[in-house]
Design a protein around this nucleic acid. Structure first.
Ligand SMILES: [Mn+2]
Ligand SMILES: [Mn+2]
Ligand SMILES: [Zn+2]
Ligand SMILES: [Zn+2]
Lengths: 140, 140
DNA sequence: ATCTTTATTGTAAAAACTTGCAATAAGGAA
DNA sequence: TTCCTTATTGCAAGTTTTTACAATAAAGAT
């Protein structure tokens, strides 16, 4: 409930408004496990703010992502999940069992620099999901 | 119409069946531009095979991807598009204007090896979409 | 040719996500 | 406080994607 307020000045300075819906959603993202689906967020935030609706959740998550407060993650099958934006990292998801691990961005950093200088693209997103096969599933 | 047949022996040897729906969809993927949406595929393939339905298209695309004939691509907002699986490559998409370029897999190869040895995950997918800002959009 | 097995499809409905628009309310000005 | 502007929301309807299950038809055996 209060943790959302920490972001209020930043949002207000950009000309955005502080609404209870946004605060409730930020609260959920801050205090829950990572990578929540829009539905997860909706159901949890609804407890704080019962008149919340689903379109607002989708729009708010996209809004927070666009402003760098939240980060979208590509879960399997092209579905998006969200988490608060903290330190840069990536994920590898097992395409067999769904198991998921984190990878330090450091490991990809020199590749990112090469990719940026080669392509001319900048500010490439440092939260990518790779799909592979985990050690367990490789055994069988 | 005929190009799908090229894949028939491979599919049959895995115990799968050759259906006109699959052939029509393979035909579309072979002869059309890259990265088609399921809806693109549906509308084009319907011309060859008018009784085709959308659930079949979704299932078939997923089926082809699982068997390595097609490749899913993460388009913006967590939407999937598909293309035939050919040489390994990646994409960078501009998160401002949507412009899109290809990146040789070669550029990422050493990073992939590091990631595989560090994580123990193998067969990591070599068709990733990165999001960044293109040179044009960087100017403004 | 006919039969049998079962992978694959279509149907119908549900779930997930998006959109347009009118109503609301946040934040600044008076 | 009250008023004004307009960003944001809720509502209702639309579109996209998934699912369960019964009907169909591909492929191999007879
Ligand atoms: Mn993450
Ligand atoms: Mn591609
Ligand atoms: Zn696994
Ligand atoms: Zn651009």
């Amino acid at each position: 409930m209060s943790c959302g307020l920490a972001y209020a000045p930043q949002l207000r300075s950009l000309g955005y408004r502080i609404t209870p819906q946004r605060m409730a959603i930020l609260h959920v993202l801050c205090h829950s496990g990572k990578h929540l689906t829009p539905r997860d967020v909706y159901q949890k935030a609804k407890k704080d703010f019962p008149t919340l609706t689903e379109p607002t959740v989708y729009r708010t998550l996209e809004f927070l992502a666009k402003n760098g407060l939240a980060r979208p993650m590509q879960a399997g099958k092209g579905r998006l999940r969200y988490e608060m934006a903290e330190d840069d990292h990536h994920h590898i998801v097992c395409r067999v069992c769904g198991d998921e691990i984190e990878v330090e961005h450091e490991l990809l950093e020199s590749m990112y620099r090469k990719m940026e200088s080669t392509s001319g693209y900048q500010r490439i997103d440092s939260h990518v999901t790779f799909f592979g096969v985990c050690p367990e599933c490789l055994k069988t």
